[in-house]
Amino acid sequence: MAVNLKQLTQREELLTGGHRACAGCTGSNILRQIMLTAGKDTVVGGATGCMEVVTTIFPYTAWRTSFIHTAFENCAATISGVETAFRSLKKHGDLPREREKMNFIAFGGDGGTYDIGIQSLSGAMERGHNMLYFCYDNEAYMNTGIQRSSATPFGAHTSTAPAGTVKQGKEQNRKDLTKIMVAHNIPYVAQATPFHWKDLAAKVEKGLAVDGPAFLNILMPCPVGWHFDTAIGMQLCKEAVESNFWPLFEVENGIYKINQKPKERAPIEPWLKQQGRFKHLFRPGNENMLEQIQQHVDAEWEKLLKLETKDA
């Protein structure tokens, strides 16, 4: 099952180069990796957002599989329709080409997934469609200009929750969407990053293989919104996992498994320091905010460990 890098690189590229993602974008990398695993017999749906916009500016398309975009908040519902049509056409012998199975992939950013699209996503997961939904979570509404989302971490500067003289960025913690998806009791839920390519490929493979819906939440460092050097996006993925900010774990039929446990948890500060969105936290007087972030990361990690132990 598990693929090696050589095998992956020999597969047909289904997301072509020449798309218009920003320099240093880790999102196009996520799409590419997922499509290398999914293969050609796949229909992809994208919610309005960066990855839809940069891959489909008419008259060009970066997609070598069929792709559909309709709106911002309804990608899961749209792919519900495509997937149901497949089952119905197959049942009636009306498919354009007979085939047993196709992959149905839907994606949205954290705006299209955590926020405006959560109803559509929740409905599609509950109905049990055969689809893999993934969120490329760049922790704010990047496509519209870096506004805060419910995925934006505490303390981050965004254009609608900016760091000013009185306020210091976002005042709330992020929503734990991954666990909300676990609560849907679907066969497969996981967190991933594009740096951990082997882990990501295995998770996509599992998600597509299960009978029913699967959900992946994938961290996507954004050089524009997070304000970092375009060369270090992948490094930030690695450090997000090593600091327990973004644990790699999966939940198969309700059973939690943490895929990577750092031997020694790295402190969060160096990770924050590389990102301009947290710059104000390092001003004198904001030390307590840094502490608060560290405490939150540690507390969430402890909770996750307990969930895993309980299952074991």
Binding site: A77, T78, S80
Partner: peptide
């Protein structure tokens, strides 16, 4: 033998209908 998608809102009803019709199904 119609496959029914019993969605969670009308927004999703029309979205699923669009997905289905774009897939080539009478909807």
């Amino acid at each position: 033998t119609t496959e029914m998608i019993l969605v969670e809102s009308e927004h999703s009803a029309m979205s699923a209908a669009v997905g289905s019709a774009a897939a080539g199904a009478r909807t």
